[in-house]
Nucleic acid binder design. Sequence first.
RNA 1: GGUCCCAUCGUCUAGCGGUCUAGGACGUGGCCCUCUCAAGGCUAAAACACGGGUUCGAUUCCCGUUGGGACCGCCA
Length: 473
Amino acid sequence: MSDTVRVRFAPSPTGHLHIGGARTALFNRLYARHFGGVFVLRIEDTDRSRSTDEYIDAIIEGMTWLGLDWDEGPFRQMDRFDIYRSYVDRLIREGKAYYCYCSAEELEARRQKAMAEGKTPAYDGRCRNLTEPVPGITPAVRFRMPQIGQTVVDDLIRGKVVFDNSQLDDLIILRSDGTPTYNLTVVVDDVDMRITHVIRGDDHLNNTPKQIQLYNAFGYEVPGFAHLPMILGSDKTRLSKRHGATSVMAYRDMGYLPDALLNYLVRLGWSYGDQEVFTMEELTRYFSFDNVGKAAAVFNPEKLLWLNQQYIMAMTPEALTGMVVPFLVKENILAEGQSLDMAWLARAVKTLQERAKTLVELAKSLRYYIVEDIEFDPRAKDKFLNEKGLPLLEDLNTELAAQADFTHEGLERVFKAIVEKHGVKLGALAQPVRVAMTGGTESPGIFEVLGVLGKDKTLKRLNKAIAAIDQKG
RNA sequence: GGUCCCAUCGUCUAGCGGUCUAGGACGUGGCCCUCUCAAGGCUAAAACACGGGUUCGAUUCCCGUUGGGACCGCCA
């Protein structure tokens, strides 16, 4: 048969899509695309008390924002309880599973006791050989795990990992309330959805032998496994809120580009020689488990920021402009619904895009182009809007009032002439003008700024600056 | 505690027995460019955890030690 690669991302809706989940989804998708296979999205919501529809939406929103589109699904395990039930029945019928009448409280107490005594907290198998039901108790169902021999996980990233079956205890596959548990559903679904490769976090490696035994019990072929190294925080513990933003949506709101985030994430554990920046097309072409590392990686926000800037710089001003508008609204630079000449905005964006690391920064830096009245930064004003600069600014005002050519070349000619006349360096004029135009001391090249601002605004601000100096003196 | 995984600059990593005076990237320092800020260019400091083997030769293979991580739920 033609072995079409089929992989899945199977988050549980108990939180937002986070950085680690996004990377798992990415690797799955890359693997599928690399082989022209199928990427399935499956929601693992068998824990009814912790799963919510809001989080399902949030996960889908995150995947969509990142552009991690899937081919099948989203499937919800909640909709498939009948299927799991039939698999459990089959196991019971074949004697491969049995009813367990121990209460959750008893089990918990025994576990605590074992932990306290320094023993391995494992189910002791006391209900294993019960022949008669215990009246008045609705039982859970346990899988009868083989007690001797070994189970080998042949991992695509780690090679063969051997587990002694004596370490595996009889896990619950059906809760006493009739709902199935993870280890059962994951196997049933991967079989049912004909998953060929299970690509997931390292934290699942220890569950794998149990799942393999379930495959064996059902008589199904075991899929390929690839356990990805974890993503750690700066203190080398599992990435969590303590380390800052972990939700994918938080990065969107902070002004990161989805492709930049993806590019950063793929390099956590995967590499292709010395290359740092990849297009999605390159990633799907190059991706292989051969160059996925085994060691956990520390999440480094600094490098993500750099990558984001690389992506911002590489975009066309027009595309960037479209993305920055919502941030202009959020920063109150643009009123909701207020329209703007997009071609003009793109010109402004072009002057700033190599100066912004995030869309938020870009939006903020756009302020002086867009708003009518700018405010002078007090320190900038003191330093550059003073008696010394006044004659320069006045000359410039006069010259520009008669100047129709606001191109870089045209403006440069005017500036050069004034600077020569006064025998000063360009900076002596450029800085006061910069403060007059932007309110601050940092901006794109002064000719670019004036070009974007246009004659009217330029003269208006020049006059305001001159007035401010006069008033002071 | 048990089981399993992992180990190259601060961080992400290249390296798949000799090419290693260990390469790249982020970050950090310096210089250049320059109307400011960036961008860009050049440059500097910075790592093979330790101990045994195997081998003519180990960063690379094996074992141990140490250190880190994950899992041990009627969570996923």
